[in-house]
Nucleic acid binder design. Structure first.
Length: 111
DNA sequence: AAGGTGACAGTTT
DNA sequence: TAAACTGCCACCT
């Protein structure tokens, strides 16, 4: 009934991202048919901090594979640590082999 | 109520 | 090739 569903869908998709994989704001937005609202996805992540169950926002990066949102975590290294813990290697605040680890919700969910 | 902001992305200079 | 600008749409003050 409200765009709140949009956020719910965003959280749901983010939760579907398997460990060790990463996705992008644009891909998620596009999956919901709102390719122009990629910024809103980032905003949704911002609100997901108090969300339960916790949304793995650390698995969501920008289309360049850059950890742009690390500043919004408890501490800046938390995002990187969480990703490295899952096997994702971060180099220069950027996901290494991003193209290989990229998890596209459209491709994965559409099958 | 109106204006400003932003965890992006695509296009242009 | 790299850097900068604009577009976009909901949320916040």
């Amino acid at each position: 009934m409200k765009n709140k569903d949009f956020y719910s869908d965003v959280y749901e998709i983010v939760r579907l991202i398997p460990p060790g994989r990463v996705s992008t704001y644009g891909a998620i937005a596009r999956c919901l048919g709102a390719s122009r609202s990629s910024r809103l996805v980032g905003y949704a992540m911002n609100l997901s901090h108090n969300l339960t169950p916790a949304v793995p926002a650390h698995r969501v990066v920008n289309r360049n594979g850059l950890l742009t949102g690390k500043h919004h975590f408890s501490y800046e290294n938390e995002m990187q640590e969480l990703l490295e813990k899952e096997g994702v290697i971060i180099e220069n605040e950027q996901v290494k082999e991003f193209a290989n680890l990229f998890w596209d919700p459209i491709t994965e969910l559409k099958i």
